[in-house]
Nucleic acid binder design. Structure first.
Lengths: 190, 190
DNA sequence: CGATTCTTTGAAAACAGTCAATCTGTGTGG
DNA sequence: CCACACAGATTGACTGTTTTCAAAGAATCG
């Protein structure tokens, strides 16, 4: 039962019964335990990951020995290292579960085959990626136009439930501030 | 003659002679003078812009009354506000030429029509957007993992010719530092 | 309940921003 | 073709937000 991904795809394109059967045959849900890795820095990234349930994080170990959050992946989101995927070079990122999660691992080869069998999927992935890219443009805007304090407040207003869901040091890293400073910002509020 | 865009598309997908004719019929090159706007904040953004020659900038006027660079668009790049394009809401960004430029303005309606006539174009735009999104992921990494000084040095090593090409205050804004600080960084070098 | 992981708090230091004034270059109109 | 005006770059002094380091306090998990 991949109801989740089929439903998601159908928000953007229409699928025949046959298409659905093909997709269901080509995909399966993998259960990932908290802290498990889907891939690690140095490895090739050769899949797209669809989070059915749970939460993943894409991060990088930088030169200073610190972990830098790039992105969270939650329910009904695709997440992967597009740079490694497209260049064929090893990934600099790690993709790790931060909650017990259910993930559909769509291998590049499988995706390529699906894209040939169901060309409309090109459209699905195009639309999704354009949306994600638009969000990335806005993120750059927020990063540069707001101070750390403002970014936290803004994020907290928009995603209060998510702020509760993830560890603070990960959120701090995602917002580009130190965990200590995030702690102080929280203390300010009440 | 839209040799530029046809050549670019053919790097990613193959086109029949008929496809090429359709694309050429649907597109035309617009000449834009330095400082001219392709769209402005508050307007709907309803096109994708392909820079044949020249340089565009996508930026936003933030609350503090300052301009914040989001992105440059140079030869053979697509640039637009994907957020406005996909949401149908007015853009918060401005798209302006910073050099006399030649641009192909691909209206959304025209693009939609082309995508129906030549479904392989879905693939072309998907691949391009995935690459751009990968670059955006890396950009976030650089922003957070490097200091302003490091970002400048890194950018200067990778794109020395481009650093010469654009005004310093725009580059400073793109790198997320003040023009004064960028000036000091340049002085450090020699 | 013991150990590790995460968060909080304090004090000092630094990186970069802001403001203001001056310098440079370039394009335009008289 | 010159002179002026204006946009852009530089320099100096000062300020402040955020980081870093360190240590102690919660919380969570096996």
């Amino acid at each position: 039962m991949h109801a989740a991904i089929i439903t998601h795809i159908q928000k953007f394109i229409s699928l025949s019964a046959e298409d659905i059967a093909i997709i269901e045959a080509a995909t399966e849900i993998t259960t990932i335990k908290k802290k498990e890795f889907l891939f690690n820095a140095g490895q090739l990234c050769h899949a797209n990951y669809f989070v059915v349930r749970g939460c993943l994080r894409l991060y990088i170990d930088n030169d200073k020995g610190a972990e830098q959050m790039i992105q969270f992946g939650i329910d009904n989101w695709w997440i992967t290292d597009y740079m490694s995927l497209n260049s064929g070079r090893p990934s600099e990122f790690c993709l790790q579960a931060i909650e017990d999660s259910e993930v559909i691992i769509l291998d590049t080869k499988t995706r390529d085959k699906l894209l040939l069998q169901i060309p409309a999927l090109e459209r699905y992935f195009r639309i999704l990626t354009e949306m994600a890219y638009g969000a990335a443009q806005m993120r750059v805007h927020y990063i540069f136009s707001m101070s750390g304090r403002e970014r936290y407040k803004h994020f907290n207003e928009r995603f209060p439930q998510f702020v509760q869901r993830v560890p603070q040091y990960l959120l701090a890293s995602y917002l580009g501030i130190s965990p200590e400073f995030l702690s102080r910002l929280r203390a300010e509020k009440e």
